[in-house]
Amino acid sequence: MNLSPLVISFQVAIPAGLLTFVLGVWAAHAVTRAGRLQNLWDGLLTLPMVLPPTVVGYFLLLIFGKNGLLGGLLYRAGLSVVFTTQGAVIAATAVSFPLMYRAARGAFEQLDENLISAGRTLGLKESTIFFRVVMPGCWPGIAAGALLAFARALGEYGATSMLAGNIPGKTQTMSLAVASAVAGNNRALASHWVAVIMGISLITMLALNILTGLQRRALGKATN
């Protein structure tokens, strides 16, 4: 069995997960403080979660295609996104982003606002408050969101096939390999990949449950 889909899946999901983590946490923090436009931003940033992945892929093509807004610039700089691993990373990031964003936002909103105010009156820098008070106070929720987003990035299919295609050895991830195997009537290969995906997903969900338990314990402590 050719293992390249497994390797490519992780080559895509790890950078996509990291990107999603940073962007999602940043966006959630910014929107929590956005005041009046909060609802609008919230809707826009959650949109990729409810749109069909193919629609997300279509928009990504519009943006990153050779004639697209960003794609044109990148193309002139000698970088191509369409039909490359970078494209798969972008697609996985776009689709997994709302999961991270929503989890982080929920965690930020549960944090006692007075802790932040206390930090400010004590003269702590905003960055110190964020990294030493807000993030530790929110980490179980944020870590759970990151895990969920990573699992989603790992299994991404729709937007990836639109933007990065299904090129064996280059952009063919495990979920794309399943589709190809079924289309080529190779049931044995398809069930191999299905088993691998099931195993990874199960482990992820198990870790998620442990994290949620930790979060409940942390909240219980705070209220006692």
Partner: peptide
């Protein structure tokens, strides 16, 4: 002035100690 530059100590009703420290 931002709270950081006011040098005003504030004892919160429930003290607002950082629970992770």
């Amino acid at each position: 002035l931002p709270p950081q530059q006011r040098r005003v100590g504030y004892l919160f009703q429930h003290y607002a100690l950082f629970p992770n420290m």
